[in-house]
Structure formats: structure tokens, C-alpha cells
């Protein structure tokens, strides 16, 4: 897995983790520590990556979504 792909999935994971916290993080924290890094990753994948890289990002995001689904069911 290429570094920008791995980072994009990782930053999405950080975002998901914050959504599951028992207390709410500040909007600034969400923006600076999750959304902006994720936007940079996605930009890099679109500008320098392949279609397969983009697909891997989506697969990684989907795996994180399944993690949330497991929490919702329990």
C-alpha cells in the first residue's frame, strides 16, 4: 500500500475514533488534526496516485465504516 493511501485511511480512522469518544472534541481539533490532513492525503492520491490507489482508499474507508457498524450493533 502506497504511503498516501495508508495515511488517508489512517486519518479517516483518527476521525472515526474521535466520533466514538465519550466526550466531544472541539471543532478546531477535528478540522486541524483530521479533516485537513485527510484533505491533503486525498489531494495527493488524486494528483499522484492511480485508480487502484483511489480504490484502496475507498476499501480502507469501508473497513473503518464496518468498525463503526460493529459498535452500533453491540
Amino acid at each position: 500500500m502506497k504511503p498516501p493511501v495508508k495515511r488517508a485511511i489512517g486519518h479517516f480512522r483518527v476521525l472515526v475514533d474521535h466520533a466514538l469518544r465519550l466526550r466531544e472534541p472541539s471543532p478546531e481539533h477535528i478540522l486541524q488534526r483530521m479533516v485537513m490532513p485527510l484533505c491533503a492525503d486525498l489531494r495527493q492520491v488524486l494528483e499522484e496516485g492511480t485508480r487502484n490507489d483511489a480504490w484502496e482508499v475507498l476499501e480502507g474507508f469501508s473497513q473503518e465504516c464496518q468498525r463503526i457498524a460493529r459498535v452500533e450493533r453491540s
Binding site: 504511503p3 495515511r7 480512522r13 483518527v14 488534526r33 483530521m34 490532513p37
Partner: peptide, 24 residues
């Protein structure tokens, strides 16, 4: 730096930077 990724044998640490970490 938000680009940092730390990979251990069976675990990975992602960060949004500034000390904000997620351990998988």
C-alpha cells in the same frame, strides 16, 4: 507531523499531528 505513521509488529499508530494518535 500528521504524515507520521509508526508501525509495530502487529499494531499501527496513525496521527493527525500535534500529539493526536490512534493505535490500531
Amino acid at each position: 507531523d500528521p504524515s507520521l505513521i509508526v508501525e509495530f509488529d502487529h499494531a499501527t499508530v496513525y496521527t493527525g499531528g500535534g500529539g493526536c494518535f490512534s493505535l490500531a
